[in-house]
Design a protein around this nucleic acid. Structure first.
Lengths: 195, 195
DNA sequence: CGTTATTGTGGCACCCGGTGCCACTAGTCT
DNA sequence: AGACTAGTGGCACCGGGTGCCACAATAACG
């Protein structure tokens, strides 16, 4: 299904590069793996690496932004009868549901991101997109502007508790991500009433 | 009141360096100011700069960590009769109250941090300390461990809404930070019930 | 078929943040 | 005067990231 276009063909793909990078990060560590190493392993030049990913950090994240589109669509498709907070909780749970096969890699990636300071820092920039999805939905539902305090605060709160759930998940092998997320997200609807 | 110690005296101080850096960042922009520029303006060598601040980012933040000690102490001193959430709201409001003179610089610094991608990213690492203060307090009050889901989730939620309030403050010159923070923080206690 | 337009590659040189090393400077103490 | 000590800063190096540009590979056209 490759439409023939003019010009030389790409030497690799973002997905393949991401895989190579992720495996090397996992084996040697993020800081111990240079971009040159990754490029060499993928059979491309260092310069070319930066045409696929704007930074070494971005390679660890993959195409997160396009995934966000899924969540945005899911929220938009929520029937109006469902409350705002319930809709968000459901959508976030769905967004973080992975088939068993992918789950292993997902966990590995999240360990990497949440335990490597450079990646943790960088992640803030990615979360901005996530928050925007939530804020836009809240705004649409409440008639506020997406940039207003309420939608932004709600988005920030949801992100905050979701990340806490993720941390717990990574800390304990046997924990269930969905259960942790559900507990954390529900906490918001109940005014942080501590059970 | 300088106690004479052995050895050469420091050429400057962290505070002075922070001031020089902050002014230059404000005038030229963060990315347009190199460490060499700052060092030269402060009359020290580039190498020496990194003895005062571990990174260029850190210079923009100043001694945030020591400020956190204040918040921790304020929380610890809260009478047990005051509810957890109320205690947190009060402490956070206090922590972000600045005398008029300092307020101008505080605002300038926050504009810098929240509008410069590199600094926004780095800030995540600083917020970890802030979250720890909140989580520790919640843990102490509820008998949970500081690393447990509930304390961490509460800390994440508070940080999320507080940052949203800050964003609003920066977006509008005439806005009152305290009022915005109060609205955002109260939102948590009321289960994000949208007024 | 050769030519041309197009798309991607990757080497090179450079900038900047950050670090290890080490000689040097400027002090105090005996 | 030494000896000791804390701080300075030059130098060389590493690694991420970028602008530039020649070159490679492919499709389309005459």
């Amino acid at each position: 299904m490759v439409v023939p276009r003019a010009g030389r063909r790409p030497a690799t793909s973002a997905g393949e590069l991401e895989h190579v990078a992720l495996r090397m990060f996992d084996e040697r560590g993020f800081d111990e793996t240079t971009v040159e190493d990754i490029a060499a392993a993928a059979g491309i030049g260092r310069r070319t690496f930066f045409r696929y990913y704007a930074s070494k950090n971005d390679a660890a994240w993959g195409d997160f932004d396009s995934q966000l589109g899924r969540m945005r669509a899911a929220l938009a498709a929520t029937p109006p009868a469902v409350g705002v907070l319930d809709a968000l909780r459901t959508a976030i749970l769905d967004f973080n549901r992975y088939p068993a096969a992918e789950a292993v890699w997902h966990r590995r990636r999240m360990v990497l991101i949440l335990r490597t300071p450079a990646l943790t820092a960088h992640s803030t920039l990615r979360y901005a997109g996530w928050r925007a999805v939530v804020a836009d939905f809240v705004a649409a539902r409440t008639g506020a502007a997406p940039g207003d305090l309420i939608p932004q605060a709600v988005a920030g709160a949801f992100l905050g508790v979701a990340l806490a759930a993720y941390e717990q998940w990574l800390a304990d092998d046997r924990a269930e991500l969905q259960a942790l997320l559900d507990t954390a997200l529900t906490l918001l609807s109940t005014g942080l009433r501590l059970p």
